[in-house]
């Protein structure tokens, strides 16, 4: 009897102690994580505040709050080059949107064939497609350049956009195949019985059921195209065709780093579209990464 009474007394104390310890660990962890968050975001917030600062303050202030707020750097940066940033933003926007359309269309067509259609050599081509994922782009870079040069495309946006319509980003094919395979086969088998053509099954059944993966592919294509520097650097020669990334590069070169606040202002603006997707489609982005291992 007494034994039981003793254990009854001790148990609650033990759990209270454990809970207390847990609470402390949790508080400590939050403190650490908040500290880490501040450290992670500090450079970005600092750049934002630097774009509003008087120029002479940029290289002395470590705080986030400017002594006086001025929007001057924005128009100065915007018109700081021979061609204004409106043109660069427009070019980037057109290239990114066309890339999204091309990627989503071409990759979903190929993915539908791999996931649902039966044809001779399917597994072989699928393996080849996966193999191209591993291929560093350096190996195809120079002959592609020669090809586009001979087609007279260098200096236009075509070398940046046309490959997307040919499903050159095979990663998205893989992503969509994975998703298509998860859609119950009964749906398209029933449609097939009713005499639906492969095209109608693709267009009327698969695509409408695959909006999440199509959106994920679209958003990542947009962000990667928007951020791309290497492609535009090689193919765009005339400043009027430059993308935002190239515009920023020219800004660094031409002002010789004398106009930091203008540069920061344009840098901040260049991040806005990506940040927009981050804010509104975060779940889609994070799920895309968690389930497929997208690299960034």
């Amino acid at each position: 009897m007494t034994d039981i009474a003793v254990t009854d007394d001790v148990r609650p104390n033990e759990t209270v102690g454990l809970e207390k310890r847990r609470a402390w660990v949790s508080v400590l962890l939050h403190v650490l994580l908040i500290g880490a968050s501040i450290l992670m975001l500090y450079p970005l917030l600092w750049m934002l505040s630097a774009s509003f600062r008087p120029e002479e303050e940029i290289f002395s202030a470590t705080s986030l709050i400017p002594s006086s707020v001025s929007l001057e750097a924005y128009p100065r940066g915007w018109f700081g080059l021979r061609v204004d940033f409106g043109t660069f933003f427009w070019n980037s926007f057109v290239i990114s949107i066309l890339s999204v359309i091309g990627n989503v269309l071409a990759c979903s067509l190929a993915a539908f064939a791999f996931a649902r259609l039966k044809f001779w050599g399917r597994n072989f081509w699928f393996a080849i497609m996966l193999g191209t994922l591993m291929l560093p782009y350096h190996v195809t870079l120079i002959p592609q350049y020669v090809l586009f040069l001979n087609l007279g495309w260098v200096g236009t946006m075509l070398p940046l956009v046309v490959p997307k319509f040919l499903a050159a980003d095979a990663f998205f094919i893989f992503l969509m195949v994975q998703f298509f395979r998860g859609i119950p086969r009964e749906l398209d088998e029933a449609a097939m019985m009713d005499g639906c053509s492969a095209w109608r099954i693709y267009w009327r059944i698969m695509l409408p059921l695959s909006l999440p993966v199509l959106a994920t592919a679209a958003i990542f294509t947009f962000i990667w195209t928007w951020d791309d520097f290497f492609g535009p650097l090689i193919y765009l020669t005339d400043m009027r065709t430059y993308t935002v990334q190239l515009g920023l590069r020219s800004f660094v070169d031409s002002t010789g780093l004398s106009d930091w606040s203008g540069l920061f202002a344009m840098s901040m603006l260049s991040l806005v579209p990506v940040f927009f997707f981050f804010l509104f489609f975060q779940r889609l982005l994070i799920e895309g990464i968690a389930t497929t291992g997208i690299k960034r």
Binding site: D227, F229, S267, S270, R296
Partner: peptide
């Protein structure tokens, strides 16, 4: 890591 590779 989302913003990371941009020129900015």
């Amino acid at each position: 890591s989302l913003l990371g590779t941009s020129v900015a």
